[in-house]
Computed example of a mutant assay.
Amino acid sequence: MRRIAVCPGSFDPVTLGHLDIIQRASKLFDKVIVLISVNAAKTPSFSSTERVMMIQEVTKDLDNVVIDILDGLLADYVRDVGAIAIVKGLRAVSDFEYEFQMALANKKLYAGAETVFLTTTAENMYLSSSVVKQIAYFGGDISHFVPMEILGDIQDRLMQEKGVKHEY
């Protein structure tokens, strides 16, 4: 039996913190599905397709990682793909309270999957997609926060949103 895990998130954009959790999950499970969740309450900077392509680029060396898009309930998706775990990264205690509530709700909706929490490394404790977008918006250097393979794409898009063309 293959151990499949789902690693959901918005990944708008994918950060080094996300990549760390994905890489670590890939060592624990036979297959990891990085699941881009659509959140109707948010307006993303990158389309779902662009996020898929960015994650594919930075995980191309991880043979057991695939990327998919979800526009529905996570518990239903986990059941449909036969996953045994939902992998979530935790940066701080404040993340735990929300993620714990979500884990309980998902368990109630589908008892067949456990939520596994991976704590972030110390250097990524403060890191989020929102932080990356805020720094980039004001022209700050985000090279320490996102994978180098997609740095230019992220800078171009976030500066474009501000109306500034990034020069290399």
Rank of each mutant, 00 (worst) to 15 (best):
I4C: 01
I4R: 01
I4A: 00
C7F: 14
P8V: 06
D12R: 03
H18K: 06
H18C: 06
L19I: 05
D20R: 04
I21N: 11
I22R: 02
R24T: 11
S26A: 15
F29T: 14
V32Q: 08
I33V: 15
L35C: 15
L35W: 07
N39I: 11
N39P: 06
A40C: 07
P44W: 08
S45I: 03
F46A: 02
S48D: 10
T49R: 13
T49V: 13
E50Q: 15
M53C: 04
T59L: 04
K60T: 13
K60L: 11
K60Y: 12
V65R: 12
V65E: 14
I69G: 09
D71R: 15
L74S: 09
A75M: 13
G82A: 10
G82Q: 12
V87K: 07
K88D: 03
D95M: 02
E97Q: 08
E97G: 00
M102A: 08
N106H: 05
K108A: 11
E123N: 09
Y126C: 03
Y126T: 12
L127R: 05
S129Q: 14
V131Y: 14
V131W: 07
V132T: 10
K133H: 11
G139D: 07
I142E: 05
H144Q: 09
F145K: 02
P147F: 05
M148Q: 14
E149P: 01
G152K: 14
G152N: 13
G152V: 08
D156I: 03
R157L: 04
M159T: 02
K162N: 00
G163H: 03
H166M: 01
H166F: 08
Y168H: 11
